[in-house]
């Protein structure tokens, strides 16, 4: 029975993510004074990619890479409690806590890296090395923030962290621990890989980065993962810093706003070089993280 609910949740999340992506693209287009794609464009792209007729494979890992990648994304979904106080949509969060989710992100990265590596395209590898390099320092402020809220709430269980934030906006971590929230939100920019931290894919410079060789169903899987991962990271931040959600409506609104923020930043700022972005996370965000631990 659990599985049915989990699949239902997954279905909702995927659809929500696709719609959100479409809407956000349209908003970005508006910022550039364009009309932009239809809001259902992500659906069509996905369908089109799954409907590609001819495919090839560079080898076993090229084939399995997208599976790993999607497993990483779905895994985060599976271990994340979605709706507070709702047993049905708490998924398998009883199997692990925040740390599990933090480390589950790596599975997807590893899958992408292995798949792209087996593809053998130099651009893919350049993208992967950039992504990994940037990721090392992106995680630093986030780790500090996590430690900070773990000290604050004396727990690493997401459900309990959400529970502690119930009772109005003044109980949110955003209000009770603004420094940690600040650090984490800055590292969120790096996690979502919109500009200024999108040198990993770096269109025009390093054509597309890691997924250069992927196509058809493989690409479709990567896109699906991107949709799930984006929403789930937003939900993670919502749970940790913005009071969680008690029903789907609040979840949609909060997730949208959180997701909107890196998109907004990306629409405004130009791109960092990779060594600049590696270092950037060690300055202001890390300083905030350290302060968050000191002043908790």
């Amino acid at each position: 029975m659990k599985i049915v609910y989990v699949l239902l949740g997954l279905f909702i999340i995927i659809n929500y993510g696709l719609l959100q992506a479409g809407v956000l693209r349209r908003i970005t287009a508006r910022v550039g004074k364009r009309i932009g794609v239809p809001f259902y464009q992500p659906y069509i792209d996905l369908i089109k990619n799954y409907a590609i007729r001819s495919q090839f494979s560079h080898g076993v890992m090229f084939y399995l890479g997208p599976v790993f990648r999607l497993s990483g994304g779905v895994g985060i979904f599976l271990f994340m409690p979605l709706i507070f106080g709702n047993e049905i949509f708490s998924n398998y969060s009883m199997a692990g806590d925040l740390i599990l989710i933090m480390y589950f992100m790596f599975i997807g990265m590893l899958g992408m890296a292995l798949g792209a590596g087996e593809g053998g395209h130099p651009y893919s590898i350049i993208g992967i090395t950039r992504g990994l390099s940037q990721f090392t320092t992106v995680e630093v402020p986030f780790t500090l923030a996590v430690i900070s809220i773990a000290i604050q709430y004396q727990t690493l269980s997401i459900t309990e962290i959400v529970a502690a934030q119930q009772g109005g906006i003044m109980h949110w971590t955003l209000m009770t621990n603004p420094l940690a929230t600040g650090a984490a939100m800055l590292s969120f920019l790096g996690m979502m890989m919109y500009a200024p931290f999108n040198v990993v894919n770096a269109p025009q410079e390093n054509p597309l980065g890691p997924p250069t060789e992927f196509h058809g169903t493989f690409l479709g899987m990567l896109q699906t993962n991107r949709v799930i991962l984006g929403v789930m990271e937003a939900i993670l931040f919502m749970n940790l810093f913005f009071g969680g959600a008690t029903n789907w409506g609040i979840l949609f609104i909060k997730a949208f706003l959180i997701y909107f923020y890196p998109v907004f930043v990306g629409a405004v700022f130009p791109r960092y070089r990779i060594d600049q972005s590696i270092r950037w996370f060690l300055y202001l965000p890390t300083a905030l993280g350290i302060l968050a631990i000191i002043f908790i």
């Binding site: 287009a29 550039g32 004074k33 364009r34 932009g36 794609v37 239809p38 464009q41 069509i44």
Partner: peptide, 9 residues
């Protein structure tokens, strides 16, 4: 923005 082919996918 002038031609905006994105509109047509």
């Amino acid at each position: 923005p002038r031609f905006d082919a994105y509109r047509f996918g």
